[in-house]
Each structure stands twice: as structure tokens, then as C-alpha cells.
Amino acid sequence: MKRYLNSWSTIIIVFTLLYFLKAFLPAAFLTEVAIYSIYAMGCSFLIGRLGLTSFGQPAFLAFGAYGAGIYLYYFGTNPFVAILVGVLASVVVNMLVGLFFVRLNSSYFTLCNQAFCVVTFFLFQKALVKWTFGDNGLLLISRMDPTPVIDLTSPKGIYLFAFIVAALVWFFYNYLMKRSVFGATCLCVKDNEQKLRFLGYKTYNIKWLAFVIANTTAGLAGALYTVYFCMVNANIASVSSASEAVAISMLGGAGTLFGPLVGTFIFIGLKDIASQFIRHWEVLVGLLLIVVMLAGQKGIVGSLEGYLAKYTAKKSEPTPALTQEGGV
């Protein structure tokens, strides 16, 4: 069962099914789910595979988004190139920031990330206001040219493209990363960094690379976001949404295959439905975080996998969740 769940065909089937869900659900909602799940995947990788919780994910989202936005506003009109520029911008920033951040232990890492998020917010809102127009943001409507093959300026095109990218991201993380030595060493970093160091691995390099990969995923999501909404403003890096990626990861189950997807689906769905009834959405996010953490932190998919494993397999590996060290 476990092996079946992890195979690449499952990924394709799930995303294809999701793609055709548009017959029943609004396409706008599904597009957002696809883009946001990419964002959540990066965060989930950090938590589940590396044991690093980052409350600063909006910052990394913002660099991708602004990379794409600034390209489209000042330089060109091709949304594909814009996404590429966004990803490149985010790679550069992540490589630099990573040099500082991955040296820290996990508590400091989290705090620094959130501080970084606030600084990024002020960077785009105040310091670079001449170029980013702060809270008003860059409006990109009619600044993008239609593209051949998949037309990213049409809702249908971006919908399809978002799903293709999401499936590729899934394939990358769950097929390539999980099966590579690198993926295994990441899990070792989370489990026992010191032992890995004794084995002769440079854990700093591993963490740095993982940090860059995970946050570039966020940057990719940010670039898609800009293209999809045809605008980007400083609010994308706002701290008040700092927890969303973590909330989604924990809700779905960090480190599980479809955790980020299920988490995103439920999170965005809840958000859309609940925001019609309650005015202040953070109450629900807060409650959600508390309930998920107190209920055993495995998340929905994590718990389901636990049940599935009980029914089907004799030998099941424990679901990766947050490390819970013994009392020694």
C-alpha cells in the first residue's frame, strides 16, 4: 500500500483527477489550491524532512512574486520569462540568506525567519517604494502578452499550467528527492545531525541546499501568483499570513505525500466558506493550529496513512512527523 501510494503514477492520477474537478468546483478556487499547494510543499519539506519550521515563508513567496512582477512591469511582457525571472531572483536571495540561516539551531532559525519576513515586508513596502509602489503594488493587467501553447493570460491556460507545475513539483519532491541519497541525508539531519556529521557529511551544505530548494519552491509559487492575479503588492509578505504555510503543512501532515495538497484544499476551502460567515479569519487558523497540534501533530493525511498502514501492511514505516526525542 505504501509503495503504491508513493509511485509516480499516483501523482499523475491524483493531479489529473483534481484537474477535472473543475466540472464541479470553481476554477478560481482550484487554481489557487494548485498554486498554494506548491508553496505549502516547500514548507512541508522543511518541516517534515529537515525539522525546520519557518514562519517566514511569505518572504520567500514575495521574492519570487516581485521578481516576476518587476520583470513584467519594467522589462518584458512574456509571463513564462517572468516566472523564470521570479524563480531566479528567489534562488539568488535564498542562496544568500541560506548562508546565514542554516547555521542556526532550529529555534533561532524560526525566529530569524519571521524577522526576515517582516524586514522583507518593509523592504517592499517602504524601502523600495519607488519601484514597488508599496501597498498599491504593481498592476500588471494588460502588461502580459498571450503566449503560444499554453496561454498564461487566459484563466484556462494558467489553470492548466498551475496543475502541470504542481504535479512536477510533487514528482520532484516525492520521486526524485525521496529516492536520492540527498533526500535521505536530509531526513538524517532532522533525526540526528551530529551523527551524520560524524559519518563525514557536511551537514551545513546539505541544509543549505535543502533550504534553497524548499524556498525556491515558495518563490516559484510566488511567481505563479503574480502571473495569476496580474498584480503584486507588499501584503504578500505580510506577517499576518506568516503561519499559513505552516498551518497548511501541519493540517495535511508534514512530510506525507499528499499532506500539503489535502491541507491546502481544506485550508483554502475553509477560508472561502468561512470568510462568508465570520469576519476575522485568523480565529479559525489559530484554532486549527491548536487543534492539529494538540491532536497529535500528524495531520489529516498522516493519521489516514497510519490507519491505512494498520489495515494493509504488516511492516509499516512510522509516519514522519516532528521529531519527538526521548527523555534521555
Binding site: 529555534s107 503561519s243 485568523e282 480565529v283 489559530g286 491548536i290
Partner: peptide, 13 residues
């Protein structure tokens, strides 16, 4: 950290 962040959000709401 995650749990108390949840408390914080709930409180702000």
C-alpha cells in the same frame, strides 16, 4: 512554537 503561534492568531482575531 506552532501551538503558541496558533494561540496568538486566535487572540488577535
Amino acid at each position: 512554537m506552532i501551538l503558541t503561534f496558533g494561540v496568538n492568531l486566535l487572540g488577535v482575531g
